[in-house]
Simulated scan of single mutants.
Amino acid sequence: MVVFVRGTVPAREFALHHTLQTVPDAEFEIERIVSSSERSVMPLSWVRGGEHEATATALEEDPSVEDATLLADFDDEWFYRMEWVDRVELILRMVTSANATILDAYGGNERWMLRVMYPDRDSLSAMDEFCTDHGLTFDIESVRQLDGEPAGRFGLTGEQYEALTTAAQRGFFQVPRETTLQELAEELGVSHQALSERIRRGMDALVDDTLLIKPPP
Rank of each mutant, 00 (worst) to 15 (best):
G7K: 04
H18K: 13
T19Y: 11
T19K: 13
T22A: 15
R32A: 12
S35T: 10
V41N: 07
P43C: 05
P43S: 06
L44C: 03
R48A: 04
A56V: 06
A58E: 09
D62C: 07
D67A: 06
A72W: 08
F74N: 09
F79T: 00
W84I: 04
V85E: 06
D86P: 02
D86L: 03
D86R: 15
V88T: 15
E89V: 00
L90Y: 13
R93G: 00
V95I: 15
A98S: 12
N99Y: 06
T101I: 12
E110H: 04
R111H: 06
M113P: 00
M113R: 08
R115H: 06
R115T: 01
R115F: 02
P119S: 03
D120N: 13
S123M: 05
M127W: 08
F130C: 02
G135V: 11
T137L: 07
I140A: 00
E141N: 00
Q145V: 15
D147Y: 02
P150T: 11
A151I: 08
G155L: 10
G158S: 14
F172C: 03
F173Y: 15
F173D: 09
P176R: 05
R177T: 13
E178Q: 15
L181N: 08
E183Y: 00
E183W: 07
E183F: 00
E186L: 11
E186R: 11
G189T: 06
G189I: 07
V190P: 00
L195Y: 09
R200M: 02
G202Y: 04
M203T: 14
M203L: 14
D204S: 14
A205P: 02
V207K: 01
D209M: 04
L211T: 10
